[in-house]
Amino acid sequence: MAGSAPLFADDMRRMARVIATNSFSAPESTIASVRADIARLVDVSDDLGIGADLPNFAASVFQRAVDAGYGAEEHCAITKVLRSPSFKVALSRHATAGGLLASLHRSACNMQSESVNPIQLQSATGSASRFGPSLCR
């Protein structure tokens, strides 16, 4: 696994470039393919009797992206949904997934420059979640 770290780092840098330049039209994987993968994860979670809260939430986010017409775009185009005002409202009403997604955003945004002011989103639990510049402009 440790030997894979450079590959993950390269992929993260590539995705950051794709997001920063809004260049979603030359996908390595698409929103639709990731949605299908997550749907399989939901099925496996159900079959194994393990919690599927996160996969179900992720599936709903990717379904929003497909419904919005982004299915054929690079999977990083999910940021278009994450940045939308309607998603931010839905996220604020979903405490568990909202807190988890906020944590993921913080992790992703800590890898990037803080030169753009992050925004605050009030979660359903009443705690402010910090979202970084690249995902929530």
Rank of each mutant, 00 (worst) to 15 (best):
R64D: 09
A65E: 04
A65K: 02
V66P: 00
D67T: 10
D67N: 11
A68N: 04
G69E: 02
G69M: 03
G69N: 05
G69T: 07
G69P: 05
Y70E: 05
Y70C: 04
Y70V: 05
G71Q: 00
G71P: 02
G71A: 06
A72C: 06
A72H: 10
A72S: 14
A72M: 08
A72D: 14
A72T: 11
E73M: 10
E73T: 07
E73Y: 01
E73A: 10
E74S: 13
E74Q: 11
E74I: 02
H75S: 15
H75T: 14
C76K: 06
C76F: 04
I78W: 00
I78V: 14
I78M: 05
T79V: 15
K80Y: 01
V81G: 06
L82F: 11
L82I: 13
L82V: 08
L82Q: 06
R83H: 13
R83E: 15
R83S: 15
S84F: 03
S84E: 11
P85V: 07
P85M: 04
P85Y: 02
S86K: 07
S86F: 07
S86W: 07
S86Y: 05
S86H: 09
F87G: 11
F87W: 09
K88V: 09
K88P: 06
K88Q: 15
K88A: 12
V89P: 07
V89D: 12
A90R: 09
A90I: 05
A90K: 10
A90G: 11
A90Q: 09
L91Y: 02
S92N: 08
S92R: 04
S92F: 01
S92H: 01
R93N: 14
R93M: 12
H94K: 10
H94N: 14
A95Q: 09
A95Y: 08
A95W: 07
T96V: 12
T96M: 13
T96Q: 14
A97W: 00
A97Y: 08
G98H: 01
G98Y: 00
G98R: 02
G98K: 01
G99L: 04
L100W: 13
L101E: 04
A102I: 09
A102P: 08
A102F: 04
A102S: 15
S103R: 10
S103F: 10
S103L: 13
L104E: 10
L104P: 10
